[in-house]
Amino acid sequence: MTEYKLVVVGAGGVGKSALTIQLIQNHFVDEYDPTIEDSYRKQVVIDGETCLLDILDTAGQEEYSAMRDQYMRTGEGFLCVFAINNTKSFEDIHHYREQIKRVKDSEDVPMVLVGNKCDLPSRTVDTKQAQDLARSYGIPFIETSAKTRQGVDDAFYTLVREIRKHKEKMSKDGKKKKKKSKTKCVIM
């Protein structure tokens, strides 16, 4: 069974824990209790493949930012979460993405942009803004509501699919490099 290491990042209060708990335990946590770091595991079937999701729910508070490099190193894919009623959390996505790329030393890291709290009427981040940002990053965008469960499975499952595509691409690139290195030079 394939294991996928997913990391949920975003500013404090955007609903990272609520999304994760909704996926794992099928219930909505409405009281806000700032996370330092929590880890969850769940076995699911995605596109006919049974897999184990190892999900790291991270601290959004700035005082825990020193811990970010460590979990970013171990993560295979990242859910970059903002709240649709919090423009600052949307603007912060850029910083999370840049930090992930720096730590992973790669421009090509599996990510999904997630606009959470889409059940709320007080939207300050337009869907088109988020779609445009995701398009500019070359990553999928999904709106979710941890409260109603809308888009929750889709967000995590899409990230797994992005990781699969990335692994497939990397193995193809690896095979191309191996083929090239088999060419021999004969000096007579």
Rank of each mutant, 00 (worst) to 15 (best):
T2V: 07
E3M: 04
Y4L: 07
L6Y: 02
V7K: 03
A11V: 11
G12K: 03
G15D: 00
K16C: 05
S17R: 06
S17I: 03
A18L: 04
A18H: 04
L19A: 11
T20W: 09
T20Q: 09
I21R: 15
I21W: 14
I21H: 15
I21C: 14
I21P: 11
Q22N: 14
L23K: 13
L23S: 14
Q25S: 07
Q25F: 03
N26G: 08
H27K: 06
F28R: 07
F28D: 10
V29D: 11
V29R: 12
D30W: 06
D30Q: 11
D30T: 06
E31N: 13
E31P: 10
E31F: 08
Y32S: 11
I36C: 12
I36M: 11
E37Q: 11
S39L: 05
S39K: 05
R41H: 09
R41M: 09
Q43E: 10
Q43W: 03
Q43A: 06
Q43S: 07
Q43Y: 05
V44M: 03
V44I: 05
V45E: 09
V45K: 13
I46R: 03
G48Q: 06
E49G: 05
T50R: 07
C51G: 06
C51W: 10
C51P: 06
L52W: 09
D54Q: 12
D54N: 10
D57V: 15
D57R: 04
D57A: 06
T58H: 10
T58M: 05
A59K: 08
G60T: 07
G60P: 14
G60D: 13
G60I: 01
Q61S: 11
E62S: 09
E62K: 05
E62V: 09
Y64C: 12
Y64Q: 14
A66Y: 09
M67S: 14
R68F: 04
R68C: 07
D69I: 00
Q70G: 06
Q70W: 05
Q70D: 15
R73L: 07
T74S: 12
G75W: 07
G75M: 08
L79A: 02
V81H: 01
V81E: 02
V81F: 10
A83F: 01
A83G: 15
N85S: 15
K88F: 02
K88I: 04
S89V: 04
S89F: 02
S89I: 10
F90W: 12
D92R: 02
I93Y: 02
H94Q: 11
H94R: 07
H95F: 01
R97Y: 15
R97T: 13
E98N: 02
Q99G: 04
I100Q: 03
R102T: 05
R102M: 07
K104G: 04
E107F: 13
D108P: 05
D108K: 03
V109W: 03
V109S: 01
P110A: 03
M111H: 00
M111Y: 01
N116D: 02
N116V: 15
C118E: 10
D119M: 01
S122M: 06
V125K: 10
T127Y: 13
Q129W: 13
A130V: 14
A130H: 06
D132M: 08
D132L: 08
L133W: 10
A134F: 07
R135G: 05
R135D: 10
S136C: 09
S136I: 09
S136F: 07
Y137H: 08
Y137V: 07
Y137W: 15
G138H: 07
G138Q: 13
I139P: 02
P140H: 12
F141A: 04
F141P: 04
F141M: 07
E143K: 12
T144V: 07
S145T: 05
K147L: 13
R149Y: 08
R149F: 12
Q150H: 15
G151P: 02
V152P: 03
D153M: 15
D153T: 14
A155C: 06
A155L: 07
L159S: 01
V160E: 01
R161D: 13
E162F: 03
H166F: 13
K167C: 03
K169I: 13
M170A: 02
M170C: 14
M170D: 10
M170K: 11
K172T: 06
D173H: 07
K176W: 09
K177W: 09
K180W: 05
S181H: 08
S181T: 06
K182N: 15
T183P: 15
C185W: 02
I187V: 15
M188H: 13
